[in-house]
């Protein structure tokens, strides 16, 4: 019975089936010819490069995403090494694909927040109850006494794609285990206190302050601000005091006794270590 049904069905519908088949083959042929005739030549190295990239589209390289960067780096080899999250491994892989020589590696750059003021250190003139972002708070004068300190509303936290930024006790803190050095936080900070620093060692010494106020004002506004006393400059030439603010030349830093002494002698304890395993 079933067989009879199938035969009946076949007899009544085979023209439709054949028509569909003919149409299908016809269009397939059209597509086949089109794909051969209108083929766009793409450098196969682009696909290989794209595969070597982390594919997180963070934009740290300055291009629209990994695909865009892959295209650009193949066209212009000087852009090699712009992928910060990928780091040295990605750089090596891309260099291999593009047959390039890579120069000596410089230390990877990581952000340092140049502020040490935690909630209890900061002087506040008033309570801020506006839009809770740093950019909004920064547009209003004197939300916190120090104009150069971390506002702790977390614009950098929101910008970080790797969960490496955290506000701990009113201070933006970098988790260097997770950080890839993509510079998103540097761009997000309205006060510009986050700076990329070459990390030659696992932990770097830094003057965690950006206040160019006079020593008296800095002290009035924050317990851990640099007052420009120049004690550190006597220990090492790497410290330079300019405009009431000490700065450490990171290129000259190396772990040594002189730097330790400078750190211990700092009266406001603003010279600190930043990096892994503090």
């Amino acid at each position: 019975m079933i067989l009879a049904d199938i035969i009946t069905l076949w007899n009544s519908s085979w023209p439709a089936g054949v028509t569909m088949l003919v149409l299908g083959v016809g269009f397939a042929l059209v597509l086949l010819i089109a794909s051969i005739k209108l083929k766009v030549e793409q450098d196969e190295r682009i696909d290989k490069t794209l595969a070597a990239l982390p594919n997180i589209n963070c934009g740290a390289c300055g291009f629209a995403g990994c695909q865009d960067y892959a295209k650009m780096v193949v066209a212009d080899p000087t852009l090699l090494g712009k992928c910060f999250p990928g780091g040295v491994k990605t750089k090596e892989k891309i260099a291999e694909i593009l047959n390039l020589q890579i120069s000596e590696d410089s230390a990877p750059k990581r952000p340092i927040v140049h502020c040490a003021g935690q909630t209890e250190d900061k002087t506040l003139f008033a309570k801020y109850d506006g839009i809770p972002t740093c950019t909004s708070a920064n547009a209003l004068s004197n939300v916190q006494a120090c104009k150069f300190g971390c506002l702790s509303f977390g614009d950098c936290v929101a910008s970080c794609k790797f969960g490496a930024m955290k506000i701990i006790d009113g201070l933006a803190t970098v988790d260097y285990e997770k950080c890839t050095g993509c510079t998103a936080c540097v761009k997000a900070c309205p006060r510009g206190i986050i700076e990329m620093v070459p990390f030659a060692y696992d932990k770097m010494m830094t003057v965690a302050c950006r206040s160019v106020e006079s020593g008296k004002d800095t002290k009035a506004f924050c317990k851990v601000g640099c007052i420009g006393c120049k004690l550190c400059t006597k220990q090492s030439e790497a410290f330079v005091v300019n405009n009431n603010l000490a700065k450490l030349d990171y290129a000259k830093y190396q772990p040594s006794e002189a730097f330790e002494t400078a750190m211990n002698k700092c009266p406001t304890k603003v010279i600190v270590y930043r990096g892994k395993k503090i």
Binding site: L124, F125, A126, L140, S141, N142, V143, A145
Partner: peptide
């Protein structure tokens, strides 16, 4: 206007 926190402005 701008809210101000420091009366020495």
């Amino acid at each position: 206007g701008f809210a101000i926190a420091d009366l020495s402005i």
